[in-house]
Design a protein around this nucleic acid. Structure first.
Lengths: 319, 319
DNA sequence: CACCGTTACGGTATCCGTAAGGATT
DNA sequence: AATCCTTACGGATACCGTAACGGTG
């Protein structure tokens, strides 16, 4: 058995069971890939694919099982490379972090500045998406880790480590009638057109639920994935926004007003999202600790290797 | 990178950093093994071993990290073979279970009888040892799983799944004065010579602690690893024995008497011990369920893959 | 000198790509 | 006809084992 064979297997599956496509992506000739699979099947003594006259129809149950293990092995092969890179050139390499707009724009700038200073040799890049997309990137090992609010779905092999608690605020234009409602109520908010996050963000679910629980139906005039877009429309008078408090920048958003609404909406958790059994280079752990200093290296490695499991309801600092 | 290189690495480490020995065990020439390591080091760009003039002194920290991952990959390679065997010949193959004397002799006979009937094609073998030895066998992937009482030490990658609770009884010859002490007390027991398990069994620790907590010091005249040996000496009048209740066979031990002592000694847990990320063939899971029907296949697989973590204090049936 | 790991070399087995074949839509 | 997987074949490559080499106790 052979890693090449396993790579072929995974690539075929990832390309919708088309050997030719897999071959292209592997930079191999197509017959070569065919043979890898044949030899794997011969050695394990099982059919991995269900064929019908020179055509692959589906993967067998055995194949599924084999695929799962193969993927883990390839991930480990990748990990070995990373270990090599880590020790060959400590502090040099690349780091890819997936995150949402809000975090990229409001939470991470300080972290990134500090990181760049500490690790000038690391090529840092951010991939932006919804929390769900971030988790998918982590699951597929396309990024080193993600920083985003929690996601309901479970992703195979993906671990969410809660770091902070995010509260909500209502953002209004200056002299908005809501500014005089004290304390702020959901009923009051529901009287005005609302701008908030799109489906797919946990915030959206929380906002919806809060209103629904009070038998209210907010008038959502715009869903955005982006706090800046939301604020732009608030400023233009289209409505008020319900955003994470961190999305309001006291220094720059002087043309807007913020009303704390933590008593109205459930807070959500801001997580670091990592892949199980993924080797994280030293500077990746350093980035995480810059983001959440309370994280402890040993704990994190325990979590990653699956030896320890995360406590489900830790006390989290607010951001 | 390839699996041969990783196998060489592990074998070298397992043979005390002697390449020649590793080569022998791998059925390869010694230069071949040397080259595997050189190529691995070249490809990863790290020194795995610290050499000093043609002699390997130790493994580098990088090497340690690499070794960990390599071992996991080789385990997975093994798992792939098992998946193959499983589907090629369902219900044929071999199963190796580590256990202690007491379980082999008193708990497992029924399980094994049922198993043999259900899977006549499986070559079942038992390896006997102390609980600690059983865990070591699991850790080293030398057995499929183990059934034994709990051990204090943590073994890397080894998972203990509690299944039953074991109580203690005092075993005496007929007409022993203790038989008239009701209720039985530790003070009463301490007046007589005691036979119990050797160090290394959780029972020994529990027994010692029970006496110590009452400021008593039992007069242990013999430590055995074996309930049958203990009973033999009880019968010969050497003393009374403190054993797991299951170690008393009402039908056959007519020449002995049993006094329930569950109120005096902490019960201990009887666990199934499995290795993390180990593929268990269908009949291995079947064996476990014959032993502990409350085990659920999906749960077990969840545990094995590390997705779920075991509840630490489940309610257990008594055996 | 016995032992151990590294280097050098020649033969073999493996694996790749090209080309051709058979089946399906 | 176009697409897709499989089989066949020649050449390059990788890998193994033997033998020779250099340190070490």
């Amino acid at each position: 058995m052979n890693l090449r064979q396993l790579r072929s297997l995974c690539e075929i599956v990832d390309h919708g069971l088309r050997i030719s496509d897999a071959a292209g992506s592997l930079h191999r000739s197509q017959p070569s890939v065919t043979r890898q699979i044949q030899e794997l099947e011969k050695e394990l003594g099982v059919d991995v694919f269900l064929r019908r006259r020179n055509r692959i129809l589906e993967i067998t149950p055995q194949g599924q099982e084999i695929l799962r293990i193969a993927r883990r092995m390839l991930l480990d092969a990748d990990n070995l490379q990373k270990v090599g890179a880590e020790f060959a050139k400590v502090g040099q390499g690349s780091l890819v972090v997936a995150t949402t707009h809000t975090q990229a724009r409001y939470t991470l700038p300080n972290v990134i500045r500090a990181f760049k200073e500490a690790y000038p040799g690391v090529n840092l890049s951010l991939r932006q998406g919804t929390p769900t997309q971030c988790c998918e990137l982590v699951a597929g090992n396309r990024v080193d880790f993600a920083i985003c609010t929690e996601v309901e779905e479970k992703f195979e092999g993906v671990l969410q480590v809660p770091c902070y608690r995010l509260n909500r605020s209502v953002i209004t234009p200056p002299r908005h009638p809501l500014l005089r409602v004290k304390p702020l109520t959901l009923e009051a908010i529901a009287r005005y057109p609302v701008i908030t996050y799109e489906q797919g963000f946990s915030a959206r679910g929380i906002v919806n639920k809060a209103f629904a629980d009070h038998g209210l139906k907010p008038n959502v005039v715009l869903s955005a994935i982006d706090a800046d877009v939301s604020k732009t429309y608030v400023h233009s008078g289209m409505g008020i926004a319900i955003l994470a408090t961190i999305g309001f920048d006291v220094a720059r958003d002087t043309h807007l007003r913020r009303i704390d609404a933590r008593h109205l909406f459930k807070s959500s958790r801001l997580n670091i999202v990592v892949r199980h059994n993924n080797y994280l280079r030293g500077y990746a752990l350093a980035f995480m600790r810059l983001f959440a200093p309370r994280l402890n290296k040993a704990d994190l490695e325990g979590l990653l290797s699956g030896r320890v499991s995360a406590s489900r309801h830790p006390v989290l600092p607010e951001l």
